[in-house]
């Protein structure tokens, strides 16, 4: 059901763990499936993300998207990191089953929440960043029968 890339990131997740003094940390949850993702970012004085770490309580797709998201944001500027959307993460993973698309939103939102925390702490404004939501609502509509 999952692509090889997803299975690889699920079995060998990159950057699992916590961070002592993160520049920003964000936790998001998905009301629908009860899963939770926490993302830590270490951002240097030039606004470059040096490292990202995560902890996830969630399905295989949630773990794999967290892992991939930490890889994708590392080395990017804060501004560039905003472009690591759920679509970008999914593409990097060679896709997800339709029923699992929403899991990748967790990753996107976790990055945003961590960036928001970083912005708040440093009193800066990041162009295009919205305040984090506590609950990720289901974005797609399910077919009704």
């Amino acid at each position: 059901m999952y692509s090889e890339k997803v299975m690889d990131h699920f079995q060998n997740p990159r950057n699992v763990g916590e961070m002592e003094n993160p520049s920003g940390v964000g936790t998001v949850g998905n009301a629908k499936c009860g899963d939770i993702m926490r993302m830590y970012l270490d951002i240097d004085e030039n606004g470059i993300i040096k490292e990202a770490k995560f902890k996830t309580f969630g399905c295989g797709a949630a773990v794999a998207t967290s892992s991939m998201a930490t890889e994708l944001v590392a080395g990017k500027t804060v501004q560039e990191a905003l472009e690591v959307t759920n679509k970008a993460v999914m593409e990097a993973l060679d896709g997800l089953p339709p029923v699992k698309v929403h899991c990748s939103l967790l990753a996107e939102q976790a990055i945003h929440a961590a960036l928001w925390d970083y912005a708040q702490k440093n009193g800066i404004k990041i162009e295009g960043l919205e305040p984090p939501v506590n609950d990720i609502e289901e974005l797609e509509e399910e077919e009704e029968y």
Partner: peptide, 14 residues
């Protein structure tokens, strides 16, 4: 507690 079912199933499957 603290973990999610599907992840467990996939690892068991492995």
């Amino acid at each position: 507690r603290f973990i999610e079912g599907e992840s467990m199933l996939i690892m068991l499957d492995m």
